[in-house]
Every structure is written in structure tokens, then in C-alpha cells.
Nucleic acid binder design. Structure first.
Length: 340
DNA sequence: TCTGGGGTCCTAGGACCC
DNA sequence: TCTGGGGTCCTAGGACCC
């Protein structure tokens, strides 16, 4: 008997949920994002495979998506629908003899024991499809990192195994940003050091990287590239460290009284989220994104940890007062941080 | 064609203390 | 009057992820 980690990832989750309740959209380019109006500020949450063929992907501005794929059906984001679909998937996964770690709306890790993880993976796919109508890809590895990256090779609707034996064969020549946790910025910094591939990163002296990228990040990146991490699959319920709300305005705010008012509105929503957690917040941070796109934050500690809406509103107002700039405001955000 | 919303973790610099 | 070195905490910003 051997231990395996399975990474279950729903295929084009949000678009798939929309197609499920509107079968006439099957086979059609579907783009979900913002309030469904591609002439407004907003970005793509998920595009169906048909829309992706036109170069539409998550994070793309809706206006650009509309230009690239004018015939796409644009739909608003419907959080409640996705949460309901997600709950159905998770309930199905929990029927298996496994430690289940939920990872967002559309992903989960399962720790299992046995000699045929592919068979379990196919059972999972069948069960999820039977109970929800949704397709998923399952990555198999000896740890979470291997399983997560295996999923990329299995998309869509496949099963793929990636272990220490095949790690460098499959990933060694890939760019470092193929790894989970390395993005464009870090990849460029590594390239400046002459480190371009996963294989090169794995062979780098951790101490050298620590000097360039920080004492924790440097050695962590080397271990990441080796594929041999020991992150536990944790069944413990998720405990949030913070709650936040933010809004991008369709038209930049010019009047600072309007800014103050919008921060108060956001603080009220955050306070409601904090109250629902039944845990006190210790600090409130206000985010201001000025036009065109420069972002600043300022925080304010609460006099005493509290979930009181008035205390959170006061702290948000005090944090906002720390901003000196009076340029047009594109986005405002309020975040409450819980104490421990 | 300007670039969402909700999160997490790490780093660096300054304050402060001994 | 000028002054070290270390530890810790707080804050703002950066990077990444879904």
C-alpha cells in the first residue's frame, strides 16, 4: 500500500455551471465576468473552451474579450450558483475514503492509500459527473505539488500521474514559471541570474538564492523545482486571516467626499463579514487605486480587537485620512484582519 | 484595449528597546 | 558628545494564486 495525492480540478468550472443550467449554450463561446456587460470595466472570470480558441482567457478585460470574440455569450458572475455547484462536488468527494482538502471553489486535494490511484481518479470523475454533471481533471502525485502540476498535463477531463521518477523528464526543460508559486516577475529575476529552467533552478545553491531573493523565498524556490515537498493534505476547516471588500468604479471618483462615503459603505460590508465570523478584528486596511493604476494602502489598528461595526468604520475612516493624494480614484478597498 | 475581486505569504525598512 | 549591535514589532508594498 502506498500513499498518493490526487488533485481534482473542475474543467472551466464557472462556464460549465452556466452551460449546465442553459443547455442551449453547449458548444457556444461563453464568457463569464463582471456584470455580463462587455462594454463596462471588468475582466473575464472564466471562458469556455470555445471562447478560449479566440484568445479569451481569465483576467482579460471584458472589452478586449468582446473584440476578440464578438459572437460570445457574455454572462454576469453568479457567486451563489457556483457555491452551490461547488458544494455538490465537495460532498461527492467526501464519499471517498480519503483526506479531503478543499482548495477554492473548483479544486481539492485528496490523500489516499492504495496501489491503483488511476482507478480511484476515474471513480472520482464518474461520481462527480453523475452527481453534478461537471467534468474534472485529476492529477496524481506523491505530494501536492506533483499532483497539482500533473493536472495541467491531464486537461481536459483526463487523468495524469507525475512523480519523482518523471519530474525532470516532464518539467526539467520548462521555464521556471511552470512551477506553482513562480510567476512572471520571479521568473524574470531568476533569468537575470542565469536560471531559466526548472532543472537549473533545482541545481542552484539555496544559499545563493537566499542572498538574492530573501532567506525564506530563495531556498523555498529550489525545493519547489526539485518537486520534493512535504506539504500535508489538511482536512482542518479553513480559518480566514482577513476579510475584504473592494470596488472598481465605472467612472473614477473625483470628489473626496464621495471617496469617504464609499469607504464607509465598504467598511459596513466588511463589518458584516467580520460579525459572521464571530471573531474580533485587530486592524483595518484601506486600499486606494488612483487613476491610471497606482495602488497604495494604509492601515489602522483598532484600539482593542473588536467585531463592532462602528469600531471598524472608525478605523477605516482613520486609515483613509492617512492618504494625502487627491487624484481621481479608480478603486477602493477595505480589509479587516483578524487577531490570531 | 487598460488592467476584477478575494485571498495568502514574504520582504524590507523604520521604530523601539535593551 | 557620540555611540554598537541585536531582537522584535509594525507597516507598506510586492508577488502569487484562484
Amino acid at each position: 500500500m502506498a500513499g498518493w495525492v490526487l488533485h481534482v480540478d473542475l474543467d472551466q468550472f464557472i462556464a460549465a455551471v452556466e452551460v449546465l443550467r442553459r443547455p442551449e449554450l453547449r458548444g457556444v463561446p461563453v464568457v463569464v465576468g463582471g456584470d455580463g456587460d462587455p462594454t463596462k470595466r471588468g475582466v473575464v472570470s472564466t471562458a469556455s473552451y470555445e471562447a478560449r480558441a479566440f484568445g479569451v482567457y481569465s483576467g482579460l478585460p471584458l472589452r478586449t474579450a468582446a473584440r476578440r470574440c464578438p459572437d460570445a455569450v457574455f454572462l454576469p458572475v453568479d457567486h451563489a450558483a457556483y457555491e452551490a455547484a461547488s458544494a455538490g462536488v465537495i460532498a461527492t468527494l467526501r464519499r471517498f475514503d480519503a483526506v479531503v482538502e478543499v482548495f477554492g471553489w473548483d479544486e481539492a486535494f485528496l490523500a489516499i492509500r492504495g496501489d491503483d490511484p488511476e482507478a480511484v481518479a476515474r471513480q472520482i470523475q464518474d461520481a462527480v459527473r453523475a452527481s453534478t454533471g461537471l467534468d474534472c481533471t485529476v492529477g496524481i502525485g506523491r505530494n501536492k505539488l506533483q499532483a497539482k502540476l500533473a493536472t495541467g498535463f491531464g486537461k481536459p477531463a483526463g487523468v495524469f500521474r507525475l512523480t519523482g521518477e518523471t519530474w525532470f523528464e516532464l518539467l526539467g526543460d520548462r521555464s521556471t514559471d511552470a512551477l506553482w508559486g513562480i510567476g512572471a516577475k520571479t521568473a524574470r529575476r531568476l533569468a537575470d541570474l542565469g536560471i531559466r529552467t526548472v532543472r537549473q533552478l533545482a541545481a542552484t545553491d539555496p544559499a545563493v538564492l537566499a542572498a538574492h531573493l530573501g532567506p525564506a523565498t530563495g531556498p523555498w524556490l529550489v525545493r519547489l523545482a526539485s518537486g520534493r515537498v512535504n506539504w500535508p493534505v489538511a482536512a482542518t476547516p479553513y480559518v480566514p486571516r482577513s476579510r475584504s471588500r473592494e470596488t472598481t468604479f465605472q467612472r473614477d471618483l473625483i470628489d473626496w467626499d464621495a471617496v469617504r462615503h464609499e469607504v464607509a459603505v465598504l467598511a459596513q460590508r466588511v463589518a458584516a463579514d467580520v460579525a459572521a465570523e464571530r471573531r474580533p478584528a485587530g486592524r483595518v486596511v484601506v486600499k486606494v487605486r488612483y487613476a491610471p493604476f497606482t495602488t497604495q494602502t494604509h492601515g489602522q489598528a483598532l484600539p482593542d480587537p473588536s467585531a463592532d461595526p462602528a469600531a471598524i468604520a472608525d478605523a477605516a475612516a482613520a486609515a483613509l485620512d492617512k492618504f494625502a493624494g487627491r487624484r481621481p480614484v479608480r478603486l477602493l478597498g477595505v480589509r479587516a484582519e483578524f487577531v490570531e
